[in-house]
Design a binder for these strands. Structure first.
Length: 93
DNA sequence: CAAACTATTCAGC
DNA sequence: GCTGAATAGTTTG
């Protein structure tokens, strides 16, 4: 676990449900605005893909970037989180 | 330590 | 919309 990776993980895990952040943004927050690629690498080699919402990290220009389990799953998860967000927003289920 | 790799991004056409 | 170049950190030998 490298320091940069640590920061990236923290930032990524801080992303709220239904929200997405771009690799660039994450890199910027990590203190290395030009390390967006490194961010992708780290997320790819992340230690716990399941506890890290890598699916909330997308490319810029409203694109999706990549995903360990496949872009399909990523899209699905994003959509799912959107629904979850809706559920959390409403007072009754 | 150096080289290769990359889930990227930007500029040019 | 696609191609090519650039940047920065991780990984491997």
């Amino acid at each position: 676990m490298t320091p940069f990776a640590k920061k990236v993980y923290k930032i990524v895990t801080e992303i709220p449900i239904g929200e997405v952040r771009t690799y660039k943004l994450v890199a910027q927050k990590a203190g290395k605005p030009r390390a967006y690629r490194a961010v992708g690498q780290i997320l790819k080699h992340n230690p716990y893909p399941l506890i890290i919402p890598c699916h909330r990290v997308v490319a810029s220009n409203n694109k999706l970037g990549g995903y360990i389990f496949g872009l399909k799953k990523k899209k699905l998860l994003l959509d799912l989180e959107k629904e979850i967000k809706q559920c959390l927003a409403s007072k009754r289920y």
